[in-house]
Amino acid sequence: MDRDEFRDGVRGGFPIMVAASPFGALFGALAVDNGFTIADAVFMSAMVYAGASQMVGIELFGNNVQPWLVVLSVFAVNFRHVLYSASIARNIRHFTPVQKFFAFFLLIDPQYAESERRAERGLPVSFSWYLGFGLIIYFPWLITTAIGAVFGQLIGDPRVIGIDVLLPIYFLGLVLGFRKRDRFLPVVAASAGASVLAMHFVGSPWHVSIGALAGVLLAACLPLERPASDIPAVEREA
């Protein structure tokens, strides 16, 4: 375990922890509202650790939807992680099997995006860094879930305190971080168009998978200008 790397990870994960905290509290509040105990809510945050799908899960559970459909919906919302785990493979090949287990368990959107960015900058994606980044988000997620579950009613409407814009803006910042990559504009345009249309015609949560597949397929179909693997990521960044 490298202390400097771990601390670097903690520092990198800190703003994400801040941005995610209101949503942890919101999840806790909604969970209690839908018939969960405080312990159930924290248990779900600890086991699933995927905010959007947890919200979908408790919403469906509260509406007495059949259990298999709840699990399928959670799977659908989280389907994008299949792409993350395929894409991150290049950067975590040196992890031991146990380290990989924890790495996949902690593989949320910002964890993936920041790992990619770190590799692109030529910095090592060490397990120490990865764990520091993941744990500074994971444990506060459990704590804020508990706080939300206890004080649920105090939060009220998230729109009044403006926290509903934090996640989309945060993800927008992550998207901008990749703007120097090849095919960035066509990929973003395809995903944006497809996800907006899918939201309207198919509905949430399918807009995520449909939009993502549109962008990824387009990238695969566009003419290959140069073999991507020949150019080191650092050089492209420069």
């Binding site: 990929v187 996800s195 907006v196």
Partner: peptide, 13 residues
């Protein structure tokens, strides 16, 4: 290589 921009965009647009 397109995964980050493609997936994260669907959470924004």
């Amino acid at each position: 290589n397109a995964v980050p921009a493609a997936v994260l965009t669907t959470l924004v647009a």
